[in-house]
Amino acid sequence: MQHYHYIFTGSGLSALMTVYEMLLSGKFEEKSILLIDENTKKVNDRTWCFWDESNSFDEIVSKKWNQAIFANEKFDRILELSPYQYKKINGLDFYELIFKKISEHKNIHFLNQKVVDYSELDNHCVVKTEAETLTCNKIFNSIYNPEVVKSQNKFPLIQQHFIGWFIKSKEAVFTPNCATFMDFSVEQKGNTRFMYVLPTLKNEALLEYTLFSKDLLLREEYEAEIQKYIENLGITEYEIIEKEQGNIPMTCYPFWKHNTKNIINIGSAGGWTKASTGYTFKNASKKSKALVHFLKSESDFTKFHKKDKFWFYDLLLLDILSSKNKLGSKIFSSMFKKGDSTVIFKFLDEETSIWEDLQVIWRCPKMIFVKALIGRILK
């Protein structure tokens, strides 16, 4: 039975980011590492976007925007993002970058199989695939089990779900240097619904119809709204180059309580997604750096996670969206209408001081959050 120091059950963003940080640290060359996934990561199955002021991963950033639009049915505002830029990375480019680096290290291996079970015994862990059984010292699990969240009602679960079309149009209607961050001018229908647009040329863009809500829609509903939005832009002829869809869990459920001394949940399975926005790339980068730093001096995974003020801010927002889903447009609009966009993005990156927090929070509808706070205390 093959034994490894570390086994990653799943090789998604957070697993690959953690292995990448291990490589950068230079502290794990003597450790045997195995990534197991039934997906070989050889197709462009997703894109990630994030705002950033550093040059991290710039070699695979496919597009950058210096401005972004926020809009609803009553106003639109162009946000100057400096010192940030909004960046886009294609999934396949990220996979190829990380696996190329992995291939240069003989202590790291990939197994293309499906994990069916994993467990912790007295002095080691066991991972079972459909074909074999392996042992290790530590498990990094990124296999998300939605039933863990759905089986309780203390922490709400909101889905960020979307379908996107990358189109090439006859008319030049897009501004290549300006992304549409959130456009709430689309009909809300009792939910939090917006259009998200990432232009690459004057006549090319990715348009995603996105919801923050509990329930998914039929594919036809997303696509009908995309078609309507395209027509409202004045586009009469276009071709669909590519389609994508996704469903990202947004929850403050304490996944870390399921960590053991030798098993840690990472990625969506560990609550690494930013609960109030569904953003994953920047959060995964930060969490993986923190986890690798932790591993240099600690061995008990139950000590890794700590709650902070941002977790509580996100929890209040999700409480509101869970009970009154239609309020999303009002809340985000109040933040972005006149707020300092740099401070807002810094706040969403969980890097603000208390004073900066107040600059953002004070613009939000106060009574809505007061009621949410009272409701949360009573829980």
Rank of each mutant, 00 (worst) to 15 (best):
M1T: 06
Q2T: 08
I7H: 03
F8H: 13
S11C: 14
L16G: 00
L16S: 01
L16Y: 02
L16W: 00
T18E: 02
M22H: 03
L23R: 01
L24D: 10
S25I: 03
E30K: 15
S32H: 09
S32F: 07
L34W: 00
T40R: 14
T40C: 12
T40H: 09
K41R: 14
V43I: 15
N44C: 15
T47V: 10
T47S: 15
W48C: 08
C49S: 14
F50Y: 09
S54Q: 01
E59C: 09
S62Q: 15
A68E: 02
A68K: 05
A71I: 00
N72C: 02
N72G: 06
K74P: 01
E80D: 12
E80P: 01
P83H: 01
Y86H: 03
K88R: 13
I89W: 01
L92I: 12
L92K: 12
D93H: 12
F94L: 08
F94H: 00
Y95V: 02
E96I: 04
L97E: 05
S103R: 11
H105W: 09
D117W: 08
N123E: 12
V126A: 01
V126H: 02
E130S: 07
A131V: 13
E132Y: 11
C136F: 05
K138A: 08
N141W: 03
V148I: 13
V149C: 00
S151A: 10
S151N: 08
F155G: 00
Q160M: 15
Q160Y: 13
G164T: 14
G164E: 10
W165F: 12
W165D: 06
F166A: 13
I167G: 04
K168C: 14
S169T: 11
S169H: 01
C178Q: 14
D183K: 06
S185D: 05
V186Y: 00
N191Y: 05
T192N: 01
R193M: 04
M195E: 04
P199L: 10
P199C: 02
L207P: 06
F212M: 03
L216R: 14
R219A: 15
Y222E: 10
Y222A: 03
I226H: 07
I230H: 09
E231A: 07
T236K: 15
T236G: 14
I240T: 13
I241Y: 11
I241W: 03
E244M: 13
E244R: 12
N247R: 04
T251K: 00
K257Y: 10
N259F: 03
T260E: 09
I263M: 11
I266M: 13
G267C: 01
G267R: 08
S268M: 04
A275E: 00
A275G: 11
A275T: 02
S276C: 11
S276D: 11
N283D: 04
S288K: 10
A290N: 13
L291D: 05
V292T: 08
V292S: 06
V292W: 07
F294M: 12
S299A: 14
F301M: 02
F310K: 12
F312W: 12
Y313P: 02
L315Q: 09
L317I: 04
I320G: 01
K324F: 06
L327Q: 10
G328T: 04
M335H: 04
S341D: 09
F345C: 09
F347K: 10
T352I: 07
T352V: 10
S353F: 11
W355P: 06
Q359A: 03
Q359W: 10
W362M: 11
W362T: 07
V370S: 09
K371Y: 13
A372M: 05
G375V: 00
R376I: 02
R376P: 00
